[in-house]
Design a protein around this nucleic acid. Structure first.
Lengths: 222, 222
DNA sequence: CTCGTAATCACGCGAATACGTGAATAGGAT
DNA sequence: ATCCTATTCACGTATTCGCGTGATTACGAG
């Protein structure tokens, strides 16, 4: 095989992977699956798609080797194939952040009022939880909490948050995290906590940032 | 703006970036530009495309914010917008390597005979050049050498290699590098060097790996 | 000013993709 | 065996993309 043929063949394969990422809905699916395995139906619900469209997108991702599926009784469960996939998603996201002004504008518009100056990063989170003066709350669905969460965090899914605010010490300071920098759950949680008079802040990091920082995860239900 | 709208808008932007990467030819262009700035015509020549097709691809990349252009007399020179773009390209490549069997097969078929067991990585290269028992040769075009090369390397573009083999000490051991793991230049160089009786090995790392490893670069012509 | 070179634009064809709707299939549960 | 649920497949249409050809614009040299 000559140089040009080889190049064409290799870049063709790279493009297969990039094409699989090249759809907003598929990126959203990868973002979700980075939190843990999920069934088609539950992915469809989370992403506001029909089951059929979701299934099709998942097949595209599977053909590109980015996700794998396995059967669990009636359900087909999808998961990311390995961490290189999450890393590629993250790198794309970071390039978009750096290069596309709209991304920064959107984030500022949506998170600006909640975050005030800056949301917490992994380091600040560690520091503050090390001092023991904050409660770290995971506001993702219980399913995702069970699939891996920050060591020491309390599960308080957004859906149940309102009724569970009463469980918190009234003088508590809460830091809420969810799926990552563009996940809306923690922002909404912070709004509701503050409305209830609880001091609260959003953490920008998600479970993948935590893992990448080499910090320990815990598994299983609360 | 509600959660769903925000998500849709944000992932739409991420997909813009991914779509720009989702073409073999554009990936090849990014690979090239990661070596240094280039004019449209020279990109067209390197990638076996017409100038017109190249120009169009470059515009797609520019619309996605991945490259920038500036005029230099008659020429328009393109360059990668920043290192997050190279990082994203690298992450995509690594995901493809990890997940697509064809990539490994192609690489094995093309590089297998040249590399023997394993090509050198950044670490081995450092170690061996530290011992001073090898000559590090950069076989990329002189233009790319000038735009940044491994400190201490000798420029010997593939095109001139045959006539310059005589300049090498006959007992030399050469390690050749080029643009990165899928660049064919160093493989071809190693074949020719060995055919001329010179001990030679290929380095898999390219200039971007070297930079990421925090090693120093040199600039300017040989 | 005119010429030549570099780059971009305009048009058009064929291929690939997205997505909705509804039918078909695969496993368990009864 | 039959029903139910979760998932996948098939089909049709609208849209987008890739790329070649040839015209057009931008700039500098003579």
């Amino acid at each position: 095989m000559e140089g040009r043929e080889f190049k064409d063949a290799v870049f063709e394969q790279f493009a297969r992977v990039a094409s699989a990422f090249a759809s907003p809905k598929r990126l959203e699916i990868v973002d979700l699956l980075a939190q843990g395995p999920r069934s088609v139906e539950s992915i469809a619900a989370q992403t506001s798609m029909t089951v059929s469209a979701t299934s099709r997108h998942l097949q595209v991702l599977r053909n590109a080797g980015l996700v794998t599926s396995s059967r669990d009784a009636q359900r087909v469960v999808y998961r990311v194939a390995d961490l290189s996939v999450v890393a590629a998603y993250r790198a794309l996201r970071e390039a978009a952040e750096a290069r596309i002004a709209e991304v920064r504008q959107l984030a500022e518009a949506f998170f600006g009022e909640v975050d005030g100056a800056e949301p917490l990063g992994v380091e600040e989170l560690l520091e503050r939880s090390g001092r023991g003066d904050v409660i770290v709350v995971d506001v993702r669905p219980a399913e995702e909490f069970a699939a891996g969460h920050i060591a020491g965090a309390v599960s308080m899914p957004l859906a149940d948050l309102t009724e569970r605010i009463a469980d918190l010490p009234s003088d508590a300071t809460v830091v809420a995290y969810c799926r990552g920098p563009y996940c809306v759950l923690s922002a909404e949680a912070v709004r509701r906590l503050r409305a209830a008079g609880v001091a609260a802040q959003r953490v920008e990091a998600g479970i993948d940032d935590w893992r990448r920082a080499g910090r320990s995860l815990e598994f299983g239900a609360a």
